[in-house]
Every structure is written in C-alpha cells, then in structure tokens.
Simulated scan of single mutants.
Amino acid sequence: MLTATLLFSVKTCSLPQLPQCRKLISELGPIHARLSCENSIAKQHPIYKCSEVQAEVAEHFLSAMRHYLESLCSNLRSHTITNVQSNNDKVSLLLKDSFIDSFPVRDQPFMKLFVDTQLFSVLSDSRLSTYENE
C-alpha cells in the first residue's frame, strides 16, 4: 500500500499596524455587527445575490474605508511641490519621504509600504490634480 504525505507550507509576512487602527476598528465594528446579523441569510443565497440590507452595509463599509484612506492623505498638500510650465500648466509632485516622515514613528512602517501601492497612487494623483486645478 502506497501512502502519500503532502506537506504544506504557509508563509506569512508581518504587516505593520495600520495608523489610527483603533479608530478604524470602532468605525467598522457596528458595520460588522450588522453584517453578522445577515450571515444566516447570506448562507441561503448565492454570493451574487445580495439583499438590500447587505448592499446598504457594504456601502457603509466602503464609505468608512474611503474616509479612513482619505484621512491618511489629508496632509498631502504640505508635502508637494508644484511646477508651473511655460504654458501655465501645473505639475505637482509628492515628496514621499517628507510625507512618510510627517507620520508618527509607529505609523511610518505602514506608510512606507502604503505609498508604493496602486491604491495610494490613484488617491494621491486625484488629490494632486485638484491642487493643480485650483
């Protein structure tokens, strides 16, 4: 009789703590509680079907996350330089190191990783373009 032994290896990385983590948890807690109440209903329906309550809770979750991410980028303007071209076009550049250093030391490891994400690029580019249009 042949027996096969499969070995699985799970590798994890340590992620730095989110800035203002407790505040985010307190905002998401009630949203999670509402969604948990819908759990038994969710088990009865396929994933692609969503009740009105679930859709509303998802909107609240996304709104809380959007607010959180925007709060992380609230001081972008003070870490940008704007160059005015000869044709009056403005180009704003983010000074990433200065931006990261503006956070408390305990939050900087997360911010160093966050500024290299596509999500941050889209969010900061959007902010910078509003500065250029002012």
Rank of each mutant, 00 (worst) to 15 (best):
P30N: 09
Q20E: 14
T117Y: 01
N83H: 11
S63N: 15
K43E: 14
A4H: 05
K11Y: 09
T117F: 07
S124Y: 02
Y131A: 02
F8Y: 10
T82Q: 09
T12S: 10
A33I: 11
R34S: 08
K49Y: 06
R34C: 07
L2F: 00
V115I: 15
C21L: 02
F120R: 15
N133D: 12
S9H: 13
L15R: 09
I41N: 03
H60Y: 09
R127P: 05
V115Q: 07
I25Y: 05
L6T: 09
S129M: 04
C13N: 13
D89C: 09
V10R: 06
N133Q: 14
S40R: 12
I41M: 01
M111Q: 06
D97L: 08
L62F: 10
A58C: 09
S36L: 12
D125N: 15
S26E: 08
I31H: 02
F61P: 06
A64D: 15
S40W: 07
S36W: 10
L76D: 06
S26A: 03
L15G: 02
H67L: 10
D89T: 14
N133I: 00
R34H: 12
N88R: 13
E38I: 00
T3I: 09
L113F: 03
K11H: 12
Q85Y: 04
M111E: 11
K90T: 15
G29K: 11
P104N: 07
K112V: 12
C13R: 09
E56T: 08
E70Q: 12
S26W: 04
D89I: 14
L62R: 13
L123H: 06
E134A: 03
V122M: 03
Y48G: 03
D101W: 00
K11M: 00
L123D: 12
S102I: 08
E132T: 08
S126V: 01
H45F: 04
D89L: 08
L6S: 05
C73E: 09
Q85R: 15
L7V: 11
S78W: 00
S71P: 03
K23H: 00
E134F: 02
F120A: 15
Y68V: 13
S126G: 14
D89H: 08
M1E: 06
E134Y: 05
I31S: 05
M111R: 06
E38P: 07
K90N: 15
F110L: 12
G29F: 08
